[in-house]
């Protein structure tokens, strides 16, 4: 009985795929009178054309709207978990509790490992940054649409695909390292952190470059309708998942290592 149902589901699924494939060849080609691929890619890098009005206050880059959406979603999820899940925590954890504990435990132990003498604030910071980068990067997969001030419809990009977002996070991480050095080691700590003055630049542009490459590849794939069938599953979803994980790990690792070095008390010889 179950085998029969499975077969029916598979046949239906194949039929849907075939219909979509056929439809993709019969539909009208994309409107080339709009933005060319060159313009789209330029806008994906610079965000200087397609701006979105933020609550009637200011025209902002779409990535900032993405950042606000991601923040709202994460905070809403956090409130729900805090109200409905955490009060029901048990000594022997359920699957979801285990997932949450693993997540928090990973960031806490990572901070403790990289900066064993001073890690409480660092663990909270890398938890926030890690969640923001990971979910912010995955956000581009949903392709949530927004209307620009020019009246065009665009898919909201990842928050860190905007250079301003990447600079904000890179510089904040560097500031955290500086403060860690100051609180852990006084002005000597600040001095040792200042020696790595290229760090905010490298952090910012690494994030921006990594996220941007994903956006550009996705833009390219979706611009040509023949490429937008099947291929995005691998190139879009899997690559996005992969670089969400990699970028999260890279930023928290760099921040935690630098923080640990700057705040470590040096013994006088």
């Amino acid at each position: 009985m179950t085998k029969k149902i499975n077969k029916t589901v598979i046949i239906l699924w194949i039929c849907v795929i075939l219909v979509l494939l056929a439809a993709s060849f019969f539909v009208a080609p994309p409107d080339r009178s709009g933005e060319s691929i060159k313009e789209q890619m330029r806008d994906a890098v610079l965000h200087d054309v397609n701006k979105i009005n933020f609550l009637g206050i200011k025209d902002v880059n779409p990535a900032f709207i993405s950042a606000v959406v991601v923040t709202s979603f994460l905070l809403l999820a956090g409130v729900c978990i805090r109200l409905f899940v955490i009060p029901k925590f048990q000594i022997i954890p359920s699957k979801f509790q285990l997932l949450l504990e693993q997540l928090v435990g990973f960031f806490a132990s990572f901070a403790k490992e990289k900066s064993p003498h001073r890690y409480r604030f660092l663990s909270a910071y890398i938890f926030g940054a890690g969640m923001y980068i990971f979910f912010g990067t995955l956000f581009e997969l949903f392709g949530i649409q927004a209307v620009t001030v020019n009246g065009r419809s665009i898919a909201l990009p990842a928050p860190l695909a905007d250079i301003n977002g990447a600079i904000a996070l890179g510089c904040l991480s560097y500031l955290i390292v500086l403060f860690g050095g100051f609180f852990g080691n006084g002005f000597k700590g600040v001095g040792s952190a200042l020696k790595d003055f290229t760090m905010p630049l490298s952090m910012s542009f690494r994030l921006f470059g990594a996220l941007l490459s994903g956006v550009l590849v996705t833009e390219l794939l979706y611009h040509y309708i023949s490429l937008s069938f099947g291929l995005p599953v691998v190139a879009g979803v899997l690559f996005t998942l992969l670089h969400a994980l990699v970028q999260t790990y890279v930023l928290i690792m760099l921040t935690a290592t630098s923080y640990g070095e700057a705040s470590h008390k040096k013994e006088r010889k």
């Binding site: 956090g78 805090r82 923001y132």
Partner: peptide
């Protein structure tokens, strides 16, 4: 976001 996540989760 980071302060909210710290407090909530």
């Amino acid at each position: 976001l980071s302060f909210g996540l710290y407090l909530l989760l």
